[in-house]
């Protein structure tokens, strides 16, 4: 199998917040009845974490799971483990109505690091990114300027952004422009 290549080859930008495209990340979209025990067990086995509550994401080492909608979860795992995980899900959920798809190549992922990351996001999204509105490990699906994106904070100094691969360059440019030195709005005390 050929090596996975991220859309921007790990581009990074150093502003008042550092924007970095992360290494290839395995992602599986899982749709089905999120309340079903079989599905929850399968998520725990594959993602190494229990399916989180509405609007949340859990990260456990190199794996994780995000609540995306009432019938959709996003599983994060090492890229190389995706084919095995899909086979595992197919076995575990056989006979129940579900959909599990490898979307690793369909997405781009960025990491924001720095105290001003809430400022960087606030310039681009209508979502409430204040400390009260966006606590760490709350997954907010919203938009960045003109395109859909999802983001969450791992702590007050680091955040991840996921968007579609086709708009990776656009989102990277947005984040870089927003993080340019000298343009800090300093809206939040963080």
């Amino acid at each position: 199998m050929s090596d996975p290549v991220t859309p921007l080859n790990g581009a990074s930008f150093q502003g008042f917040v550092t924007v970095t495209e992360t290494a290839p990340q395995g992602m599986i979209t899982l749709r089905g009845d999120l309340a079903a025990a079989a599905l929850r067990d399968a998520v725990l086995a594959v993602a190494g974490a229990d399916l989180p509550d509405m609007g949340r994401i859990v990260i456990n080492g190199s794996r994780g799971c995000a609540w995306m909608s009432p019938d959709e979860a996003l599983l994060l795992l090492p890229r190389a483990d995706v084919p095995d995980a899909l086979a595992q899900l197919a076995t575990a959920l056989e006979g129940s109505h579900h959909l599990a798809v490898d979307v690793s190549d369909a997405r781009a992922m960025f990491r924001l690091e720095g105290a001003g990351l809430r400022d960087v996001l606030a310039k681009l999204t209508p979502a409430d990114v204040s400390p009260a509105g966006l606590a760490p490990f709350t997954l907010r699906r919203s938009r960045l300027a003109q395109v859909a994106a999802a983001f969450w904070l791992t702590d007050q100094q680091a955040a991840h952004v996921i968007c579609f691969r086709s708009v990776a360059q656009y989102v990277f440019d947005l984040l870089s422009t927003s993080a340019r030195k000298g343009s800090e709005p300093e809206l939040f005390d963080s």
């Binding site: 509405m54 609007g55 909608s69 009432p70 209508p126 979502a127 409430d128 907010r140 699906r141 919203s142 938009r143």
Partner: peptide, 12 residues
């Protein structure tokens, strides 16, 4: 009501 997010009009 599905995900309990207070959305701006432009997200809808």
């Amino acid at each position: 009501p599905c995900c309990n997010i207070a959305c701006d009009e432009t997200e809808l």
